[in-house]
Design a protein around this nucleic acid. Structure first.
Lengths: 242, 242
DNA sequence: TCAATAGTGTCTATAAGACATTATACT
DNA sequence: AGTATAATGTCTTATAGACACTATTGA
């Protein structure tokens, strides 16, 4: 009978009975290009804030989406043409004022992808564009997306110090010099070459797969590597570059 | 005119026009008591899952709450009598199946508080109770709260390795032995006494404020400490107990 | 003096910082 | 040979682990 009480309650439950906040997801996708950290923005085609640049994102499709990770991936794909298999949740922000339509909550995701494969695709979407982060930080963005970008960037910087997150922005195979440059750009900090290589070598995260041309086309050829399986989940017990 | 277009849009915007997920916050509050990590649970008085134990939490009050942190703090206070000034966001979980009423998103918060001050208060709220974590993990809890507790516990354990989170579960003043016990219980791992004390001393996080009785009432009295201002934000560059 | 708890000394192991040196390619 | 880039050697420094030792209290 307790069981049937619950069923009666659910049968008569009306989701619209209580006023609820708007709920959305937003995605900060970063990449490296021209020795710069770039973020993908889309120009809003609808109100509110029509015409302003913003993070890709949007509302949950209650029929199609089974969870919010899927919502984030779908929104990113349809709005920008970019597919990011590894979206990481950063934070949720919810308050009365961030959206002119009223009380609103968003869950912010972050991801890193190599530049080339997506660039072609993105270029075909007229209103999606990679922005150098330094420029993006000076734009007037929709909603509180300026702050969201900064939170994502902070998480990025922090996590780079004890994970191998930068692996995700490189096309494979890559050289150790390229990997170090990726770390340096994501951390916004120069690293000692020897320390860097020791750390990577000791962790046994990479597989050597041959040789390639050096950076700049001159000099000694560099050994090339691909990530070893499971390497993305490696955690260092000591932060880097302190 | 672009401005007035936007205003016309907002004036005619109907929040109920699109079906939205339910949105709630849930809070996992931990404390230490009887040498055990405990979590605060409330017994559900309403459907769904009436009668089951659950994390305190609930829906946003669009009139009263200005942001979700405030929602979390208010829900915790009204449901359990506990006021936690430092709620930390853990993760948001949203999917089609976690709530029988349909698509639902929750933002999970976590906090640590000293046992005594709240315990009295909590005891007066009939349906709120501290549970040893080991027991809580065997209970049938409402919704996906079993998994939420585990995620909060994991974050707790992880953060204890590079912050001074355990400071928050102690009544001040405390001895270094008590502090070490707090670390050990939160990390679920024994620590070397000398390493622990060296680490704390080097970080200059504590202020000595006298002497007190030793643990167990026997033996040499222990020096007592309080946290120095700003110590809660200290980050170690090397994880502990590895 | 013994038991119990608080606190210190000291040696080793690990990994990062600094920076000099060697290696391999192209012109 | 000269230059550019890749890769390594090695000394110093910082901090954790291990564990023995001393210090201070009450019974």
């Amino acid at each position: 009978m307790k069981q049937s009480d619950e069923q009666a309650y659910l049968a008569s439950y009306n989701r619209q009975q209580f006023d609820a906040p708007l709920y959305s997801v937003d995605i900060a996708i970063f990449t490296l290009h021209d020795d710069q950290l770039k973020v993908l923005l889309v120009q809003r085609g609808d109100f509110p804030h029509k015409g302003l640049w913003s993070l890709p994102g949007g509302f949950v499709d209650l029929q199609e989406d089974t969870n919010i990770d899927i919502t984030a991936r779908r929104k990113l794909l349809t709005k920008t043409g970019v597919d990011a298999p590894l979206l990481e949740q950063v934070v949720s922000v919810g308050n009365k004022h961030r959206d002119p339509r009223g009380w609103s909550v968003t869950t912010l995701y972050m991801a890193l992808i190599p530049y080339a494969p997506s660039a072609g695709f993105v270029d075909s979407v007229a209103d999606a564009q990679w922005w150098p982060l330094s420029e993006a930080l000076t734009l007037e963005l929709a909603f509180d997306h300026q702050q969201l970008i900064q939170q994502a960037r902070q998480r990025l910087q922090h996590k780079t110090a004890y994970t191998v997150l930068p692996l995700h922005v490189l096309k494979t195979p890559f050289s150790l010099t390229q990997l170090q440059q990726a770390f340096e750009l994501l951390m916004d900090k120069k690293l000692e070459k020897k320390s860097f290589r020791r750390r990577i070598a000791n962790a046994e995260l990479l597989k050597e797969v041959g040789e390639g041309v050096p950076a700049g086309g001159k000099g000694r050829p560099a050994a090339l590597y691909i990530p070893a399986p499971g390497s993305e989940r490696h955690l260092f017990t000591r932060v880097f570059g302190d």
